[in-house]
């Protein structure tokens, strides 16, 4: 198994700062904005971004967790995963939603997330923020609005996100070659 470092702790920190600056540029005071972290791994990034935005503009943007297990289009076609908590303590009606996940791959998770979101109202606008965009792997016409880093990968490779918030010893992102 070969591992290649894509982002180290320092670069990751700079990347997250840049993503937050871009969000501030587009959302201003975040008056109607909410953050939705995708379960299971997007929520850690969502929490980091919420915290960083608070440090930058003293505004706590409301955050929810979205679990898409029941909205997948491949249920019964593969083994079922663990169902995580779905917690959205506010209505999405007329809100500007920032959907956050760590890695964008085929786009199927995002499709299911868009489907799941509709149960909570009709948002005014939905944007997608991802830390890693795996280019050339999309199955669906889905594109992110904010990207931490774009990497060229093939389907057999994997992106490993290690965050301290997830219990790892360091903040690092790796590209793994499976033989």
């Amino acid at each position: 198994m070969q591992k290649k470092l894509i982002l180290d702790a320092n670069l990751l920190d700079i990347t997250i700062s840049r993503l937050c600056q871009q969000l501030i540029e587009n959302h201003g005071t975040f008056a109607y904005s909410v953050i939705l972290g995708l379960q299971p791994r997007g929520i850690y990034l969502a929490e980091i971004i919420q915290q960083r935005l608070f440090e930058l503009c003293r505004k706590k943007v409301p955050m929810g967790y979205l679990d898409i297990s029941f909205y997948r289009d491949d249920f019964r076609r593969r083994e079922i995963g663990k169902v995580s908590e779905l917690r959205i303590p506010f209505s999405l009606e007329n809100k500007r939603v920032i959907l956050i996940d760590d890695v964008l791959f085929t786009g199927r998770t995002v499709r299911a997330a868009l489907d799941a979101m509709l149960a909570f109202g009709r948002p005014a606008k939905v944007e997608l923020l991802v830390l890693i965009d795996r280019r050339y792997n999309r199955d669906l016409p889905i594109a992110p609005d904010y990207v931490g880093k774009t990497v060229n990968t093939v389907a057999s490779q994997k992106v490993l996100v290690e965050l301290k918030a997830q219990g790892s010893s360091q903040n690092k992102i790796w590209l793994i070659n499976n033989p």
């Binding site: 029941f70 909205y71 908590e85 779905l86 209505s91 489907d115 149960a119 909570f120 109202g121």
Partner: peptide
């Protein structure tokens, strides 16, 4: 029980239906 916890959230949503089955 753990799965039912999630479904209990779902049936208290404005839209109570999911496409799982």
């Amino acid at each position: 029980f753990e799965t039912a916890d999630n479904f209990k959230n779902i049936i208290n949503q404005p839209i109570k239906k999911v496409p799982a089955l």
